[in-house]
Design a protein around this nucleic acid. Structure first.
Lengths: 117, 117
DNA sequence: AGTATATATAACTGAATAGTTTTGTACTGG
DNA sequence: CCAGTACAAAACTATTCAGTTATATATACT
């Protein structure tokens, strides 16, 4: 996929709150089945399957196989790419980025506390 | 605007290559008029105006006034917010994030070289 | 074999998107 | 005041989106 098309797909996938919630859950809990993912939402199972397809097309998740289950697995690389895209421009936007500075600093702190791992 | 709606709008705005190109240009060149923005694209002026409206709704740009021109100005804060959203999850995704690590390291370097400003 | 479970696919609907062309509006400068 | 410039708004079209319900497929269980 062309670089720009990958960014299109990733940003589009992230533009929906249901899909962001799915990613967040996968980040917290690891692989989750479709039924389990659907449960907290006021939405049918096929709707969730469709969201998963969008996420999969963006490369944000992959699917496993466990009997009749198809566990959903988070793939972080596209997120790294879009984060990269955003940070790339930071040199130009620098002045307006105090809030990001705070976040980055917090991140550095966390890493220091966690030890170089 | 609700936090989630702001993220929706920002990610959606970023999901189109024309809009990303507009932002990139504003980052490089500062404020630009609509005509100047439209020039490199094989697209009508109203199409660009629509894209600008999307960007404006997401708070990513604001508009000035200079005679009959309405110069477009980059507003970086929503970008900081989405970057924050992405980085937030980094603790969980860490292992898969070598590429982001590189970018962050490069960023640190740039800041060191530029001096604490 | 027959039923239950987990998920996918199909067919449909309504709303939103991205583009077009045409027209309107606001300001400028002779 | 009038022509030109810069832009916005309206009206239209085709495509995509997000959801639905109903049905099909795949695997497991008895």
């Amino acid at each position: 996929m062309a670089d720009t098309a990958r960014l299109d797909a990733t940003f589009h996938a992230l533009s929906d709150p249901t899909r962001r919630a799915i990613l967040a859950r996968l980040a917290r809990e690891g692989d989750v089945t479709v039924m389990d993912l659907a449960e907290p939402f006021a939405m049918s199972q096929p709707a969730i399957s469709k969201h998963l397809k969008v996420l999969e097309k963006a490369g944000l998740v992959s699917r496993g196989r466990d009997a009749q289950k198809r566990p959903v697995h988070l793939e972080a690389q596209p997120l790294a790419e879009v984060t990269g895209w955003l940070i790339e421009y930071r040199k130009y936007w620098q002045a307006q980025f105090e809030r990001l500075d705070d976040l980055l600093e917090e991140l550095q702190q966390l890493e220091k506390l966690a030890g170089k791992n």
